[in-house]
Amino acid sequence: MISFEVEDLQGEVKTVEVPEGISLSLMEVLKASEYPIAATCGGMALCATCHVEVVKGFDDLPAFTDPELDMIDTLPNATSESRLACQIHVSEKLNGALFKLKETVEE
């Protein structure tokens, strides 16, 4: 099992566990775990609705892609630990990480 933590917009932290070898992005796992992520663009790094801040484990994550860096650079609320969940492939590298959701979904 791969195990990491997610902090929602209300500040509640929960552990999320996914089986190893799963071919999903962090965005897809968050959506499947019922987190309120719009993922409007479907994972092309162009809407930033899956923007997360990596509170723990930032350095262990897979490298940034260029489209991801370009998009993060335009976000008004980005920090130096910002990532787009759709660009992070879920693997053992996520073990022990803590992701904080950054974007509210407009209903």
Partner: peptide, 23 residues
């Protein structure tokens, strides 16, 4: 002048009285 790019939004369509589910 904040220039932080564009983000897709439902926009005025939301005000037309259509039944919506999560945008």
């Amino acid at each position: 002048i904040p220039l932080f790019g564009l983000s897709p939004k439902l926009g005025p369509i939301a005000e037309w009285g259509l039944n919506l589910d999560k945008n």
